[in-house]
Design a protein around this nucleic acid. Sequence first.
DNA 1: GTGTTTACTGTAATCGATTACACTATACCA
DNA 2: TGGTATAGTGTAATCGATTACAGTAAACAC
Lengths: 344, 344
Amino acid sequence: MPAKMQDVARLAGVSTATVSRALNTPELVSTETHQRVMAAIHELDYKINLAARNLRTNRTGTLAIVIPTIADPVINRAVEAVEDAAIEHGMTLLMCSTRGEAAREQAYIRLLTQQTVVDGVLYISPRAAPEDVLRLAHGDAPLVLCNYVMDDARTPSVLVDHVSSIYQATRHLLALGHRRIALLSLDAPYYTPARMRREGFERAFAEVDAAPDPALIAEIHQPTYANDEWQATIRDLLDRANPPTAVVAFNDEVALQVYAVCRERGIRIPHDLSVTGCDDSVSGRYVDPPLTTVRVPAYELGQVAVRQLLRRIEQPRARLPRTTLLDVALVTRGSCAALHDNLV
Amino acid sequence: MPAKMQDVARLAGVSTATVSRALNTPELVSTETHQRVMAAIHELDYKINLAARNLRTNRTGTLAIVIPTIADPVINRAVEAVEDAAIEHGMTLLMCSTRGEAAREQAYIRLLTQQTVVDGVLYISPRAAPEDVLRLAHGDAPLVLCNYVMDDARTPSVLVDHVSSIYQATRHLLALGHRRIALLSLDAPYYTPARMRREGFERAFAEVDAAPDPALIAEIHQPTYANDEWQATIRDLLDRANPPTAVVAFNDEVALQVYAVCRERGIRIPHDLSVTGCDDSVSGRYVDPPLTTVRVPAYELGQVAVRQLLRRIEQPRARLPRTTLLDVALVTRGSCAALHDNLV
DNA sequence: GTGTTTACTGTAATCGATTACACTATACCA
DNA sequence: TGGTATAGTGTAATCGATTACAGTAAACAC
């Protein structure tokens, strides 16, 4: 029913080849013909049939973005960057959020290993096993990873420096005299940032010739970013006989959970407990006291990754940096204080 | 290079028709043949070419979801519902976030008026002019709207009851004795919820034979949900000679901005100022005092809408309710108090 | 035994664009 | 003037699946 290229060609008195050229390579068509074709297109309200074009050109004009959740400010921002770049290149975005569910992760990987679904895949914070990610990497569409390292020279990774973020937060607290510092982190199989955070934590301690108390490292194994389990963990931590004097949280949301538990318990921040977050999300900016956190280049994360991806799509053999590490910066606000002597 | 159906057929010793049937309508194929075909598919690692299928079947297996921003908890949740349903139906999701930019809104509408891009469109909180939305509605793909009303009998709308949410919050404050109540809302051309909120606000006043002070209605015209402008507006409001005794904010994020300004000014919540939010997002749950807000059925919003959309896709002539209104519920927490006599 | 139904399979047209190749007309050159 | 380059256009093959239609063989009915 809708007009096809044939109809346009007939109306404009040319062949379909010319219509196609008028649309895709106007420089090969005379100005006059081009105008006639455009007029016909307008007249018939012709819309190109993308399925036909895709079949013929073996391209889809679509990028897939695979993310663990849509409800995280850093990921949000990265996705915005990706969408911006996609639009700029006339491409669209297929959204695949896995919610940390292995089944979904697998299903999306299976789907995306087909060239005909998307032209490229951006995979943020994979929770899948290396062999599955590798399968995707060996699929027909180029792949770029975010926050994941994998032993495959062909697949570029872009990483926020999670080592540095936790390192900086921890160093800040150590400098304030704290030694009993708790780490609240998220862990999951194959979840690279968890390892990096632990490393940053330990490195900061090593620099002052100390070591963290393993009992104060709380790594929750949780598929999603849901908040329910954190409360229990935090209460546990603070209710101990020998509680921490400071807490490093792996993101701002969890840091605010610490705030909530402190309120319950009558613990004053920063007087009784110092707290740091991570990601510099809006929520940490307007609480009392304002949250000391780490600024993370979320938009840049998406931007760098999508640029590399687009590069690969245009030139499949393009050489790309194997890993790109993005800098972070400590943002000092009011949630940390020097350790009181009476609390040592 | 990748195996095609022809190769599978050859290896299995059947025709492509049989391979196709084995995949799409296995009940029409003998068990033995089916197994041979499956074995061949596995052997060759055959992946169906979706472009070819789409061209032939005139379907894409994709839904578009158009949203103003990805960084809003209610929208997030609605998107999750849509994705869940999409996966359940073996479909994928094309994400189109417009950031409230008219140009992007238009560009996506233009893109999606083509049948061959997606099988259906879900449009959440459109900011586009009615004629543009109508153009989309008259496109080839079925359309379902969220939080928008339009004069088109064919296009179903699913709405959160924004009238009721602000009405309930306002009534709560009125019952506590407040009369100088400010409304912080977002406005934009053609943005239905803004009108609904105003209506709820006024209705609550009308019920106690009063009227709101128009000077206390602050409707920011802002494309996005960014936080910068709110601070100024809120300061303005609170610094007046005759400031409000209560504030109704259209969402929790803005309510927390009010918290921040109050902290600056030494205004105590709820003692000096009562505050209500809306949406019951996580951020409001763990602040001090916990935010009184309105619970909004975000997941349900997406769920109801996508169900109607899928229904339409399967049966284009299906009769659907023209508008569906979703209930909301006040969540009373600690951010509101009875009006002190000395403040009257 | 003939006619009819059932179960399965194959042939070949078709979806609507792109593009290699061929062709014509004009411009340009010596 | 003949030859070659250039610009613009057309013809027709092609992408890889789906499916209407036709065909065959076995089962079944009478």
